[in-house]
Structure formats: structure tokens, C-alpha cells
Design a protein around this nucleic acid. Sequence first.
DNA 1: TTAATCACCTGAGGGC
DNA 2: TGCCCTCAGGTGATTA
Length: 271
Amino acid sequence: MPELPEVETTVRGIAPHVEGQVIRQVVIRQPQLRWPVPVNLPEILPNLTIRSVSRRAKYLLISTDAGTIILHLGMSGSLRILPKEKPADKHDHIDFIFNNGTILRYNDPRRFGAVLWTTSSPAGHDLLKDLGPEPLSSDFDGMHLYRLSRNRKAPIKSFVMDGHVVVGVGNIYANEALFMAGIHPKRHAGRIALARYQLLADCIKTVLHSAIEQGGTTLRNFVNEAGNPGYFKQQLRVYGRAGQPCPHCLRPLTEIRVTNRSTVFCVNCQH
DNA sequence: TTAATCACCTGAGGGC
DNA sequence: TGCCCTCAGGTGATTA
């Protein structure tokens, strides 16, 4: 399930293969994703050169001179580079075929992802314009969280997972960062002091940096651009470890639901 | 305005 | 072995 580190890993992986390449053909096998894939992509994209591959939140932005492909991996999506034509597997929904024969293939079993096209600045797109800061940027710090959280009664875990507050903190990394910061996931966001928010912001950055270095998290069906799994799961300290000993105090980790999301924490270490 | 819930979708895993 | 059911989860839309 791609979270920000997985998307970043994907961006870094595919960029060297597609930047500067000219699109020869687009094959859409399944247009019904989260939103319908624009049916005219096969007419629009051929002969356009990929200028850059970047990321905003969990959206991949593949830029050309005529516009930008906005791509989201959803819950189960992946992109991989194929050096030459290969028969499509199940759930291989879209191929971007380049003049040099390379194929960028989009696979998404659950079809929660999206492939869209915009000719305007992607930053102004409806999906991107109201998003919060990037967690690894200097715009994101404890003061930012503290300011936005005043008078908020939502659980801190829901608060940090809100893309209007900060982007890219999904369920796995919210669990990990809150454990690292020693904050109870159900604590009201508005009742956390600035010093604890400064610690939490640092923990979010640390967890995400570490995951990116490891190449993302391997859960179920995440694979990177080469079809290899990430390795961060081996370093998860609480997520998926309910009932196992807390890495700090050795008491059993507890699993609860916070706004309908699986949440694992230590009742002894997190307050 | 805020918080919670729903909907989308399919594969994995457990129970029988 | 096979069928059925539940769960997992990102995020926009909807509801309270």
C-alpha cells in the first residue's frame, strides 16, 4: 500500500528511465480507476517528451511541454519499467510506450489509483491546491502542527493523517511516528503542547526518511519500479505487531480503531 | 467548520 | 479442497 516513501521510491526509480523520452503510444486496457482515465490520452500523449517526474504528496507528476500526467497509486498501484514489450498481466491497466521501446506500465489490482491529465499548473489542480506542506520540507515543523491543531478535538492520529495538515502521512507511518514520539493516538490534537508537536514533527521526518532509505514498506503488494519489494517492514516497530512486546517496555502492544483505521500502540509508553 | 462515515475494489486469510 | 465472509486501506464525497 503505497505511502509517501513508496511514491518517492517510485519517482526516483522511474525518472532516469523516462525523463527525456518521447511517448510513442499509450495503451489503456482498463479505464475504470478511481476516476475514469481520460479516453483521449492515446491521442494527446504521442510525440510528447517527458520533461520531469516529480511528486506532490502521494501524486506522481509526469510533466510534458503540453501538460502533466497526474498519477496516484491508490492502495495497490505500482509502476514498473519494462525494457521491451511483454504480455500484460492481470491488472496491468495502462502502458506508456516510448520511442526507445521502454514501457512504463501501471498495475493496480484494487483500482483505487488514478491517472489524470491537466494542461494547467498541477499545483492549481483541484486535487492538489489545498494540500498541506510536504513533511520533509522546511515548511513542516512542530509549530505548524501546533498552530493548526488549536481547538481541534480530532484524535492526533487522524489529525496528522489529514492531507490539509501535512501530506503523505498514512496509517503505517502515523502509527510509527506516534509511537516514536510517545503520544497516545487518541489524544485530542488541540490538547498537545508545542514541545510535543516539535518532537512529533521530528519523528515523522525520521520515520519517512528511514523508509525512503529502505525503499518503502513491503505490505501485501507494494513493489518498486523494478518489481522489487521495499524493506522497511522489517523496521516497523508497532504497525502489524499487536500483542507482541513493546520495543521499549516489553508490555504487549494494543490494537484499537481510530476513525476506522487499525491503530497499534503501547498503553504504557504513549500518553 | 469539524468530525465521522461511506464508497470504491480485490486479494489475503480465516473459518467451516 | 472449496466456498463464504471479513478485513485491509487512501482519499474524495457525503452526512451529522
